[in-house]
Amino acid sequence: MSEKKKFNIEYEIKSSPRILYGFLNEPNGLAQWFADDVNVRDQIYTFTWDGEEQKAKLLGLKEYKSVKFKWLDDEPQCFFEMEIIQDELTNDVALSVTDFAPEENIAERKLIWDNQIDYLISVLGA
């Protein structure tokens, strides 16, 4: 198994940071685009896809700015973060995603994010 590498992707999203943020950190918001079902207890989020559960610890929250998680079964240095970036001049909003994957899986992982974010954009009606 090769060492995981950090990668970053950015998506333009036509939404206010306040609305977008709810979809990044609230279980019912995340369940609308990220996973089939999401439960949270004591900073541990349980994400369910097709009946399979995966748990992530919430590492950090910045209101209307970012959410950072770590999969419990992942390597210590790995995390995934979703950060809302707003251009001060144009007010354009982007969602920046930082994640880790083995080098040979990065393209595939980016495609998964592309699909998830497309879904998020459709949920937002953006």
Results as ranks from 00 to 15, higher is better:
S2P: 15
E3S: 10
K4C: 07
K5M: 09
K6R: 13
F7T: 10
F7Q: 07
F7C: 09
E10D: 12
Y11N: 13
Y11P: 14
I13V: 15
I13S: 08
S16D: 12
S16Q: 08
P17A: 02
I19L: 12
I19R: 06
L20W: 02
Y21F: 11
F23G: 01
F23M: 02
L24F: 00
P27D: 02
N28K: 10
G29W: 00
Q32F: 01
F34T: 08
F34S: 05
A35V: 01
A35L: 03
V38E: 08
V40T: 14
R41C: 10
D42C: 01
Q43D: 15
Y45H: 09
T46H: 04
T46L: 03
T46G: 04
T48F: 03
W49T: 11
G51D: 12
E52R: 11
E53G: 07
K55T: 13
L58Q: 05
L61K: 08
E63Y: 11
E63T: 05
Y64I: 10
K65D: 11
S66D: 11
V67N: 00
D73K: 12
D74Y: 05
E75V: 03
P76S: 07
P76D: 11
F79L: 02
F80I: 01
F80M: 03
E81M: 15
E83F: 03
D87Q: 04
E88F: 15
E88S: 14
T90S: 15
N91Q: 13
V93R: 04
A94I: 00
L95P: 03
T98G: 06
F100V: 09
E103V: 08
E103G: 07
I106C: 08
E108Q: 10
K110I: 11
K110Y: 00
W113R: 08
W113Q: 13
D114G: 00
N115A: 07
N115W: 04
I117R: 04
I117L: 07
I117F: 05
D118A: 13
Y119D: 12
L120V: 03
V123Y: 05
L124R: 04
G125E: 15
G125H: 10
